[in-house]
Amino acid sequence: MEKVMSVYWFAIIFIVAGAIVYMVSNFYGEPYDIREVESNALVYQISNCLIPELYLKMDAFNAPDFFSYCKLTFETEKYAKWENDSQFFVSVVVSDFSTGSVIFSNQTGSPSLNDFCDLQKNGHQKNLPYCLSRKVYAVDSEGTQYFVNMDVAINKGEKNAKL
């Protein structure tokens, strides 16, 4: 009788251990998703580039390559098909505060990533690119008011989410 009980005991232990192993593997097998922090860092750098001290830096609008002017690059490591498909989409639009007319507009990366942002209005889905939109109020040295709209989408799904 005791021998029969111990067989059941070990069967239960194996089932419980199997469940623990599965949960631990699942938890530690998932990569860290840092796209939210990365997109906030990108918005921070663009804001600092356009508004380094108090006023909007109008020189930035005349730069031949705006993102290079801000010391940014969107090249990634050689991984999967990342060389062929850009893993970023960044759009910067500066508009007049009163009239809404666009003073400056520039974007880079893969525009198709931005299409996924509409699908995530109710919340971010891990297997889709991470989207972030920020609107910043700025003033130039003459006192003219502007809105700076920044839209960022970061893919890098293979390294940030378990696909």
């Binding site: 990365e38 860092a41 990108l42 750098q45 290079s68 010391k71 940014l72 690059t73 969107f74 090249e75 990634t76 490591e77 050689k78 991984y79 970023f88 390294k159």
Partner: peptide, 26 residues
């Protein structure tokens, strides 16, 4: 290397991750 960080602890190829600051300008 350029704008890619590689951390190698296990002695194999390590783990790469890129940053968006332009390594040609900083």
């Amino acid at each position: 290397t350029n704008n890619v960080v590689n951390v190698n602890i296990a002695g194999r190829k390590g783990y790469d991750y890129s940053f968006f600051r332009d390594a040609k300008q900083i």
